[in-house]
Amino acid sequence: MGSSSPFFMICILHSIIAMTSGSLMMFYMKEVYTFGHGVQTATNLLGSTPHDQLLIKTSDSFSGLLLLAIGLLLFMVSFVNDRDFQPFFAKGCMILHVFMVMWRIYFERKVEDLAWDCLRQTVGDVLLALSWLFFLVYSWREKYD
């Protein structure tokens, strides 16, 4: 099976993470905010007026739907056995995670309510990017050994 087994496992892991996060964002955003940030910050993040709350809830629902779609896409891609496609896809995913880290460092940490949580999320993005990097090193080692 070769390098497709690690590719399959990484895709499935990322798929589970994305689908779980997306589902929680769509249906349990208030609870997720409270669990992740605390009651006071969750209250601030959920908006102060009914109009703001509706906009934030709609935005979170669409973000969750996007994460759910990404998770399903990752699940489908996990079954691709093309040896040329797998490293290409892994490089793209790694670049996306690096951009997410840059976004968190340069923009998200400036949001007062999210600044303390930025480090934890950045570490998570770095770990997800490293999983793709490990796959690339593994496939490169397999290719040239």
Rank of each mutant, 00 (worst) to 15 (best):
V101K: 00
L128W: 07
W103L: 14
V101M: 09
D82R: 03
F99H: 05
F89W: 05
M94P: 02
D125Y: 06
L68V: 07
F99G: 07
R83L: 13
V126R: 01
P87A: 00
L66K: 08
A69T: 01
E108S: 12
G92Y: 01
P87E: 00
T122V: 13
I95Q: 00
V126D: 01
L130T: 14
I105G: 03
I105M: 11
Q121H: 15
L68A: 06
C118D: 13
D125Q: 10
M100H: 13
A115N: 11
D113P: 03
D125M: 09
L127G: 05
R83E: 15
M100T: 14
V98I: 12
A69N: 01
L67H: 12
L128V: 12
I105S: 06
A90C: 03
F85Y: 02
L127C: 13
A115S: 15
L128D: 12
M94L: 05
Q86K: 04
T122P: 04
E112Y: 07
K91M: 06
W103D: 10
I70D: 08
M100S: 14
T122C: 09
I70G: 05
W116T: 15
I105L: 14
L114V: 00
A90D: 03
R120K: 14
S78N: 01
L130D: 10
V98P: 03
D84K: 08
R120C: 11
